[in-house]
Amino acid sequence: MTLATDLMNYALVLAFVVVGLCQLMAMVRVVIGPGTADRILALDTMVINAIGLIVLMGLAQGTRIYFEASLIIAMLGFVSTVAYARFVLRGDIIE
């Protein structure tokens, strides 16, 4: 039992570090991205990584109050990605 718990704690720390690092790498792509599509894509990736970080935080603290927040972030991220893309495609969001 203790070995398995230790391994899970190490994996949790590893996942925190890796997802945080990926958030930074996506941020680099937001800054340097040559085109509009790359910036939209990097922002979408950052939203998805934020959902992953919140899920990991709920797993680490053993609470369930964060999952509603990550559900809301998932919905807002999708809507904002589609709004950015539509703004570039049509020059207008709501026609």
Binding site: A4, M8, C22, A26, A42
Partner: peptide
């Protein structure tokens, strides 16, 4: 617990691969 560990490692590997590909 081992299944949770495996899923966490797989998830972090795929997240890292995606971020490297994005860069």
């Amino acid at each position: 617990l081992y299944a949770v560990t495996f899923c966490l490692v797989v998830g972090s590997i795929f997240t890292l691969v995606g971020a490297i590909g994005l860069l």
